[in-house]
Design a protein around this nucleic acid. Structure first.
Lengths: 187, 187
DNA sequence: GACGCTTGTCAACAGCGTTGACACGCGTGG
DNA sequence: CCACGCGTGTCAACGCTGTTGACAAGCGTC
């Protein structure tokens, strides 16, 4: 009997490397995480990391890239879409995803990372939202909504500092949600 | 006779270093710009760069940090503030500043850079906007508006790609301006 | 004239991402 | 059965990075 039914492709060590990489990138960011540190955490030679994934940057996009499930929040009723999206993004359970996004934006210093980030945003969010929006200029409006949500994810740690309690968080959902809703309804 | 009447503090070489650094950081980003390259462009020893500014990261914040003038756009009439802010941010003449902001956000991988960015945003924008907003929750609303503008600056290069002409750009100013205006009026 | 301070030079450090040459184990074709 | 090739892993080294310490030169001050 085989201990691990290996997935489509992938040795155990490859997954070990991916796991340490994911953890360290998320915690310390791209530049502060060294290939050697990832290798050490996975109990592996640094060269092996490069052999499996081709470069540090490709390892990063492979490991941080948009794992997200279909994202049902895009399918809610149009009249409350703004609010729904903001609530989704600020959901405390989604802390890790927000941090991953911020990490990717920061690493978008790097061309390959930036391209991957943009593609993922398009495929998983902007294109689908474009299809749902009513009225005119749907592509532009979808892009603008994405920019607003990006700004919120990026700025959230700072914003959260100025909030006193959960009521304030709810207030943010109302305010920002209404603002985005203006773009949903603008067609 | 002295060729250069030196400002408050600063040798000529220090300014030469700052100038090359500013240019190279703006063009290639933080990580892709090496201290040695800055030194070479300024015709100077790499060690001298570190001697003048204490580290690469301090050189970066010294040189990229918010040079902006008072910013009269914050003093316009409240009823059209959203539109004014967006038009200001998207002004083609402000291309360099937008890129500088994006570069700083990307470099905010680095703790010192992130702190400097946040402080600058507070002092130059958020605090002043807070003072101008009417109604309730002014601090939070100012922070949210800052997040929206940040998202716009960050996403603009991508958004611009999907625009056909200047009329589309004007449409963006209308749409995004109205969305921000919703936050201005939400008090 | 000796002191100290700034300004600049040079070689070296440890760490980085990445590469090339080499060793092992294992399934397959001659 | 054995040789081959291939995936996996190891090791030392490359050129680059930011930063440091020891040292020299110029210059105003006591």
């Amino acid at each position: 009997m085989s201990i691990t039914a290996s997935p489509v492709t992938g040795s155990t060590t490859r997954e070990a490397i991916a796991a340490s990489a994911r953890a360290m990138f998320a915690e310390r960011g791209y530049t502060a995480t060294s290939v050697r540190a990832i290798a050490a955490a996975a109990g592996v030679d640094p060269a092996l990391v490069i052999r499996h994934f081709v470069s540090k940057e490709q390892l990063f996009v492979a490991v941080m890239g948009w794992t997200e499930n279909p994202g049902p929040e895009l399918d809610g009723p149009l009249e409350t879409l703004g609010r729904t999206l903001v609530a989704h993004v600020l959901d405390p359970a989604r802390d890790a995803e927000r941090r991953a996004y911020a990490t990717m934006v920061q690493a978008s210093d790097n061309d390959a990372v930036r391209a991957s980030l943009r593609d993922a945003a398009r495929v998983h969010f902007i294109d689908r939202l474009t299809a749902r929006l009513p009225g005119a200029d749907v592509a532009v409006r979808a892009e603008l909504i994405a920019a607003q949500l990006g700004g919120l994810m990026q700025g959230w740690p700072t914003i959260a500092e100025t909030l006193a309690d959960d009521a304030d968080r709810a207030r943010v959902v109302d305010l920002y949600g209404a603002s985005i809703q203006a773009l949903v309804d603008a067609g």
